[in-house]
Amino acid sequence: MFKIVKKESLNPTVTRMWIEAPRVAKKAQAGQFIILRVDEQGERMPLTVADCDPTAGTVSVIFQIVGATTQKLNALNEGDCLQDFVGPLGRATETEGLKKVAVVGGGVGCAIAYPVAKKLYGQGCEVHAIVGFRNRDLVILEEAFRAVSHRYELMSDDGSAGKKGLVTDALKALIESGEQYDEVIAIGPLIMMKFVSALTKEYGIKTIVSMNPVMIDGTGMCGGCRLSVGGEVKFACVDGPEFDGHLVDFDEAMERAAMYRDTERHAYEDTCNLLKKGDEAHG
């Protein structure tokens, strides 16, 4: 069993937990993910590692309450235990040799973009963070991001936080103003990653995206997480989760992500209608 040592609400629909998992904490790197099960009947849910503390032996995950499982997870409190917690899975973000990078995060995807920014910043890379949210209430990790970036661009759909507009507007403006990036790393909703990749393709800037498809085992055994990358079938769990954004078939990934949405939605609505508003924001 894996104890929840700390729990905090980052916004009305996003929660951060620190889980006691010393061996995972020792190994996990930015870009990798874990799979957890809340209880004996629970599904296996992949979540990207948001941070880890090898000394304390804890791993942090950040999740948005969008379905039955995340709701069940959110119902647990400090001191409660998770049934299962396995990782680190997938490949770590490749950061070697990068001198200047734009890290683009969208919504709860910022939770995954943050450790990447932190790692880059730590190795002396110039980091420009561009983060987007629907509105002020949903902004997460602002202080954390500011601490690991040389430039922080906050965007919101309604202009209630930072500038009004999309992350692609901010990225485009920076590129147009002459900023030259070795790489763009984009993590967020599929639709955001699709448009960031389309934009950077025009400018010929290498772009890495982080995919989070439905999966079961996370070790390559089920193949449920497969996606098309450059016309080839790849398994997100062992080949990814990060891929070249210019090669990913996002339309297919979006359809596949919706595969269980009806079932999931039913399970969720059966139990709770409270958080529907937030869900619509980033679902």
């Binding site: 190994k27 917690f85 396995v86 680190p88 899975l89």
Partner: peptide
């Protein structure tokens, strides 16, 4: 929950 090659 122990993936050899990843955890150890």
């Amino acid at each position: 929950n122990s993936v050899v090659g990843k955890l150890i």
